[in-house]
Amino acid sequence: MAKISQISGKRNGYFGALALVSILLGLYWGLVQAPPDAYQGEVQRIMYLHIPSILTAYLSFFLVFVGSCLYLWKREKRDDILAYSAAEIGVLFTALTIIEGSIWGKPTWGVWWTWDARLTLTAILLLIFAGYLMLRSLTEEENRGASSAAVLGIIGFLDIPLIHMSVYWWRTLHQPPSILRPDKAPWENIAWPLLTPLLLNLAAFLLLYFYLLSLRFRLGEVNEEIKALKLSRDF
Protein backbone atom coordinates (compact mmCIF):
# COMPACT_ATOMS: atom_id res chain seq x y z
CA MET A 1 0.00 0.00 0.00
CA ALA A 2 2.90 2.34 0.72
CA LYS A 3 4.13 1.78 -2.83
CA ILE A 4 1.08 3.41 -4.35
CA SER A 5 1.87 6.55 -2.42
CA GLN A 6 5.40 6.51 -3.76
CA ILE A 7 4.34 6.29 -7.37
CA SER A 8 1.85 9.09 -7.17
CA GLY A 9 4.49 11.03 -5.26
CA LYS A 10 6.69 11.19 -8.35
CA ARG A 11 3.84 12.24 -10.59
CA ASN A 12 2.96 14.85 -8.04
CA GLY A 13 6.48 16.18 -8.15
CA TYR A 14 6.22 16.83 -11.91
CA PHE A 15 2.87 18.48 -11.41
CA GLY A 16 4.34 20.67 -8.69
CA ALA A 17 7.17 21.68 -10.98
CA LEU A 18 4.64 22.63 -13.66
CA ALA A 19 2.77 24.71 -11.11
CA LEU A 20 5.98 26.44 -10.10
CA VAL A 21 6.86 27.31 -13.70
CA SER A 22 3.44 28.82 -14.34
CA ILE A 23 3.64 30.77 -11.06
CA LEU A 24 6.98 32.26 -12.07
CA LEU A 25 5.62 33.10 -15.52
CA GLY A 26 2.58 34.71 -13.97
CA LEU A 27 4.74 36.70 -11.57
CA TYR A 28 6.95 37.97 -14.36
CA TRP A 29 4.04 38.90 -16.60
CA GLY A 30 2.04 40.49 -13.81
CA LEU A 31 4.85 42.49 -12.26
CA VAL A 32 7.08 43.33 -15.19
CA GLN A 33 5.49 42.80 -18.57
CA ALA A 34 1.99 44.13 -18.08
CA PRO A 35 1.46 47.88 -18.19
CA PRO A 36 0.01 49.68 -15.17
CA ASP A 37 -3.69 50.41 -15.20
CA ALA A 38 -4.66 53.82 -16.55
CA TYR A 39 -6.88 54.56 -13.59
CA GLN A 40 -5.52 52.60 -10.64
CA GLY A 41 -1.80 52.63 -11.48
CA GLU A 42 0.58 49.97 -10.23
CA VAL A 43 -1.75 48.94 -7.41
CA GLN A 44 -3.93 47.25 -10.00
CA ARG A 45 -1.31 44.49 -10.17
CA ILE A 46 -2.69 43.17 -6.90
CA MET A 47 -5.73 42.11 -8.92
CA TYR A 48 -3.55 39.46 -10.56
CA LEU A 49 -3.49 37.84 -7.13
CA HIS A 50 -6.91 38.84 -5.91
CA ILE A 51 -9.11 37.51 -8.71
CA PRO A 52 -7.39 34.11 -8.99
CA SER A 53 -7.49 33.81 -5.18
CA ILE A 54 -11.21 34.43 -4.90
CA LEU A 55 -11.99 32.13 -7.82
CA THR A 56 -9.87 29.41 -6.26
CA ALA A 57 -11.61 29.94 -2.93
CA TYR A 58 -15.02 29.52 -4.59
CA LEU A 59 -13.78 26.43 -6.39
CA SER A 60 -12.64 25.06 -3.06
CA PHE A 61 -16.03 25.66 -1.55
CA PHE A 62 -17.64 23.88 -4.45
CA LEU A 63 -15.36 20.89 -3.90
CA VAL A 64 -16.30 20.87 -0.21
CA PHE A 65 -19.93 20.75 -1.33
CA VAL A 66 -19.35 17.93 -3.80
CA GLY A 67 -17.30 15.94 -1.30
CA SER A 68 -19.92 16.46 1.40
CA CYS A 69 -22.81 15.36 -0.83
CA LEU A 70 -20.95 12.27 -2.01
CA TYR A 71 -19.90 11.39 1.52
CA LEU A 72 -23.40 11.61 2.95
CA TRP A 73 -24.71 9.59 0.04
CA LYS A 74 -22.08 6.86 -0.31
CA ARG A 75 -20.16 7.08 2.99
CA GLU A 76 -16.84 6.50 1.29
CA LYS A 77 -13.90 7.92 3.21
CA ARG A 78 -12.27 9.34 0.06
CA ASP A 79 -15.07 11.85 -0.39
CA ASP A 80 -14.70 13.00 3.18
CA ILE A 81 -10.96 13.41 2.71
CA LEU A 82 -11.66 15.50 -0.40
CA ALA A 83 -14.03 17.76 1.51
CA TYR A 84 -11.65 18.18 4.44
CA SER A 85 -8.68 18.91 2.16
CA ALA A 86 -10.63 21.41 0.08
CA ALA A 87 -11.82 23.14 3.26
CA GLU A 88 -8.31 23.45 4.68
CA ILE A 89 -6.84 24.89 1.50
CA GLY A 90 -9.97 26.95 0.97
CA VAL A 91 -9.43 28.69 4.31
CA LEU A 92 -5.91 29.61 3.22
CA PHE A 93 -6.99 31.09 -0.11
CA THR A 94 -9.99 32.90 1.38
CA ALA A 95 -7.82 34.49 4.08
CA LEU A 96 -5.32 35.53 1.41
CA THR A 97 -8.12 37.01 -0.69
CA ILE A 98 -9.19 39.18 2.22
CA ILE A 99 -5.64 40.33 2.87
CA GLU A 100 -5.10 41.14 -0.81
CA GLY A 101 -8.41 42.97 -1.00
CA SER A 102 -7.55 44.98 2.10
CA ILE A 103 -4.09 45.92 0.81
CA TRP A 104 -5.59 46.91 -2.55
CA GLY A 105 -8.20 48.95 -0.76
CA LYS A 106 -5.77 51.12 1.21
CA PRO A 107 -4.31 53.10 -1.71
CA THR A 108 -7.55 52.91 -3.69
CA TRP A 109 -10.11 53.94 -1.10
CA GLY A 110 -7.81 55.19 1.66
CA VAL A 111 -8.91 52.64 4.25
CA TRP A 112 -7.67 49.18 5.23
CA TRP A 113 -11.17 47.86 5.58
CA THR A 114 -14.53 48.76 4.24
CA TRP A 115 -17.79 46.88 4.42
CA ASP A 116 -18.17 46.76 0.69
CA ALA A 117 -19.91 43.76 -0.80
CA ARG A 118 -16.85 41.86 -1.99
CA LEU A 119 -14.81 42.08 1.20
CA THR A 120 -17.83 41.35 3.39
CA LEU A 121 -18.78 38.32 1.34
CA THR A 122 -15.26 36.95 1.47
CA ALA A 123 -15.15 37.49 5.23
CA ILE A 124 -18.39 35.53 5.65
CA LEU A 125 -17.01 32.78 3.44
CA LEU A 126 -13.94 32.61 5.68
CA LEU A 127 -16.15 32.34 8.76
CA ILE A 128 -18.10 29.45 7.25
CA PHE A 129 -14.91 27.62 6.22
CA ALA A 130 -13.41 28.19 9.66
CA GLY A 131 -16.62 26.89 11.24
CA TYR A 132 -16.28 23.76 9.13
CA LEU A 133 -12.75 23.12 10.39
CA MET A 134 -13.70 23.86 13.98
CA LEU A 135 -16.71 21.58 13.83
CA ARG A 136 -14.49 18.75 12.65
CA SER A 137 -11.83 19.23 15.27
CA LEU A 138 -14.32 19.66 18.13
CA THR A 139 -16.50 16.66 17.31
CA GLU A 140 -15.27 13.72 19.28
CA GLU A 141 -15.96 10.70 17.14
CA GLU A 142 -14.30 10.66 13.73
CA ASN A 143 -17.26 9.51 11.63
CA ARG A 144 -19.62 11.82 13.46
CA GLY A 145 -17.24 14.69 12.70
CA ALA A 146 -17.18 13.76 9.05
CA SER A 147 -20.95 13.66 8.62
CA SER A 148 -21.51 16.78 10.77
CA ALA A 149 -19.04 18.70 8.67
CA ALA A 150 -20.65 17.35 5.50
CA VAL A 151 -23.99 18.82 6.59
CA LEU A 152 -22.33 22.18 7.16
CA GLY A 153 -20.59 21.93 3.81
CA ILE A 154 -23.87 21.37 2.01
CA ILE A 155 -25.92 23.97 3.88
CA GLY A 156 -23.10 26.51 3.66
CA PHE A 157 -22.79 26.11 -0.09
CA LEU A 158 -26.55 26.42 -0.61
CA ASP A 159 -26.56 29.53 1.55
CA ILE A 160 -23.81 31.28 -0.42
CA PRO A 161 -26.05 32.60 -3.23
CA LEU A 162 -28.50 33.95 -0.65
CA ILE A 163 -25.71 35.58 1.34
CA HIS A 164 -24.32 36.97 -1.92
CA MET A 165 -27.66 38.49 -2.89
CA SER A 166 -28.39 39.96 0.51
CA VAL A 167 -24.96 41.54 0.96
CA TYR A 168 -24.95 43.02 -2.56
CA TRP A 169 -28.45 44.45 -2.17
CA TRP A 170 -27.51 45.88 1.19
CA ARG A 171 -24.43 47.56 -0.18
CA THR A 172 -25.82 48.88 -3.46
CA LEU A 173 -29.02 50.22 -2.00
CA HIS A 174 -27.26 52.18 0.68
CA GLN A 175 -24.06 53.20 -1.04
CA PRO A 176 -23.63 56.94 -1.26
CA PRO A 177 -22.66 57.98 -4.81
CA SER A 178 -19.44 59.66 -3.73
CA ILE A 179 -17.60 56.37 -3.32
CA LEU A 180 -16.28 55.38 -6.72
CA ARG A 181 -17.35 51.99 -8.15
CA PRO A 182 -16.77 49.93 -5.03
CA ASP A 183 -19.02 47.13 -6.13
CA LYS A 184 -18.11 46.74 -9.75
CA ALA A 185 -16.22 43.55 -10.21
CA PRO A 186 -12.73 44.43 -11.40
CA TRP A 187 -12.84 41.98 -14.26
CA GLU A 188 -15.69 43.88 -15.86
CA ASN A 189 -13.35 46.67 -16.79
CA ILE A 190 -10.33 44.79 -17.89
CA ALA A 191 -8.52 45.86 -21.02
CA TRP A 192 -6.77 43.43 -23.38
CA PRO A 193 -3.11 43.87 -22.32
CA LEU A 194 -4.15 43.27 -18.75
CA LEU A 195 -6.14 40.15 -19.59
CA THR A 196 -3.10 38.02 -20.47
CA PRO A 197 -1.35 38.31 -17.08
CA LEU A 198 -4.67 37.78 -15.38
CA LEU A 199 -5.34 34.54 -17.23
CA LEU A 200 -1.74 33.44 -16.73
CA ASN A 201 -1.94 34.02 -13.00
CA LEU A 202 -5.33 32.33 -12.89
CA ALA A 203 -3.89 29.24 -14.55
CA ALA A 204 -0.93 29.35 -12.15
CA PHE A 205 -3.22 29.54 -9.14
CA LEU A 206 -5.38 26.68 -10.37
CA LEU A 207 -2.34 24.48 -10.97
CA LEU A 208 -0.98 25.41 -7.54
CA TYR A 209 -4.34 24.72 -5.95
CA PHE A 210 -4.68 21.24 -7.41
CA TYR A 211 -1.07 20.46 -6.53
CA LEU A 212 -1.66 21.45 -2.89
CA LEU A 213 -4.98 19.62 -2.90
CA SER A 214 -3.40 16.40 -4.10
CA LEU A 215 -0.72 16.65 -1.38
CA ARG A 216 -3.30 17.26 1.29
CA PHE A 217 -5.48 14.47 -0.09
CA ARG A 218 -2.58 12.05 0.09
CA LEU A 219 -1.99 13.11 3.71
CA GLY A 220 -5.61 12.26 4.44
CA GLU A 221 -5.30 8.88 2.74
CA VAL A 222 -2.10 8.01 4.60
CA ASN A 223 -3.71 8.96 7.91
CA GLU A 224 -6.65 6.72 7.09
CA GLU A 225 -4.32 3.80 6.33
CA ILE A 226 -2.50 4.37 9.61
CA LYS A 227 -5.77 4.32 11.47
CA ALA A 228 -6.92 1.15 9.74
CA LEU A 229 -3.62 -0.60 10.45
CA LYS A 230 -3.68 0.42 14.09
CA LEU A 231 -7.24 -0.83 14.44
CA SER A 232 -6.47 -4.20 12.84
CA ARG A 233 -3.40 -4.62 15.02
CA ASP A 234 -5.38 -4.08 18.17
CA PHE A 235 -7.39 -7.16 17.31
Binding site: I124, L127, I128, G131, M134, G156, I163, S166
Partner: peptide, 9 residues
Protein backbone atom coordinates in the same frame (compact mmCIF):
# COMPACT_ATOMS: atom_id res chain seq x y z
CA UNK B 1 -20.05 30.30 15.58
CA UNK B 2 -21.46 28.08 12.87
CA UNK B 3 -24.96 29.50 12.83
CA UNK B 4 -24.46 33.25 12.70
CA UNK B 5 -22.58 33.52 9.38
CA UNK B 6 -25.25 31.38 7.76
CA UNK B 7 -27.94 33.64 9.19
CA UNK B 8 -26.68 36.78 7.42
CA UNK B 9 -29.43 36.81 4.76
Amino acid sequence: LILFPLMVP
